Amino acid sequence: MDKIKISNLEVYCHHGVFAEENVLGQKFLVSAVLYTEIEEAAFEDDISKSINYGEVCHYIKELMEKYTFKLLESVAECLASRILMRFPLAKRIKLEIKKPWAPIMLPIETVSVEIEREWHTAYLSIGSNLGDKKDNLDQAIALLNADEYSKVTKISEYITTEPVGGVEQDDFLNAALEVKTLRSPKRLLEIIGVIERQLKRERKVHWGPRTIDLDIIFYDDIVMDTKELTIPHPEMEKRGFVLKPLLEIAPKSIHPIFKKTVVQLLDELDD
């Protein structure tokens, strides 16, 4: 991927742990590498098809002067995410913030924090079988879109499916979502938990009825297994209510463990 680089942009602002830093301020140096595709802009010689690095520099200055943080880590996180949201042609950013006047009472050239952030693609399964099922799904999608770090980019058709697990209950309304997000899997799971609580999801019976159910099925090609979260979602390959909606919006997505597409997984399930 092509790169646009900004090196050592000088900004005077008021970040730091000590009160004096917040009052008096000091110099910071910001460097950024923006990963994008420049071929179209280059052939057409058109700045609107590329990232205007002048606008990026002024936006960095604006953000650093607008907010006050104690930690360089917080400054870097704010800048990286805001730049990616403000400039949609930037797919990924590598950002370094240097603090040459760091008050550590020792001779030092500079200290810095360097991070990389990018847009990720997650696929979610969503379902409801209590109350107004369609409204529950619509509300959950709206709440996901309300999160500034995530945006729903594809929604499958809502389909009716029979419940599984042996608990007598009403049929489900299910769908699949494609979500572009700056959140890590852990942070995305936290937002899902907030949404489920807002829509009064109760976990009284395993496999029981619920107003809303949101699960992360894929997140890029990540494989992870922690106490809180497993990706890809366990046994998704055995669940038609997951695979059928997912087929509509991501038929060629590959299961990172089985190395099979959604089409292949659904064909095997049908067989």
Rank of each mutant, 00 (worst) to 15 (best):
K3P: 05
S7G: 04
Y12E: 01
C13D: 10
F18S: 00
F28E: 04
S31I: 13
A32E: 08
Y35M: 09
E37D: 12
I38E: 10
E39I: 00
A41Y: 01
A42M: 05
G54M: 06
C57Q: 15
E62C: 01
Y67M: 03
S74H: 15
L79N: 00
A80M: 06
S81L: 13
I83N: 09
I83A: 13
L84D: 14
M85N: 10
R86M: 13
L89Y: 11
I93Q: 12
L95H: 08
L95N: 14
I97D: 01
P100N: 11
P103H: 04
L106K: 12
V113R: 03
T121L: 15
T121V: 14
L124M: 13
L130R: 14
N136V: 07
L143T: 08
L144K: 03
A146M: 10
S150M: 04
K151W: 05
T153G: 04
V164R: 13
G165E: 13
E168V: 03
Q169G: 05
D170I: 00
A175P: 04
A176I: 02
L182A: 11
K186G: 10
R187W: 07
E190L: 09
I195G: 06
E196N: 02
R210Y: 06
D213T: 06
I217H: 00
F218Y: 15
D220L: 05
M224T: 07
D225T: 05
E228G: 13
L229K: 10
I231F: 14
P232F: 07
P232T: 11
E235G: 03
L246F: 04
L247F: 08
I249F: 11
I249V: 04
K259A: 07
K260W: 05
K260H: 05
K260D: 00
V263C: 07
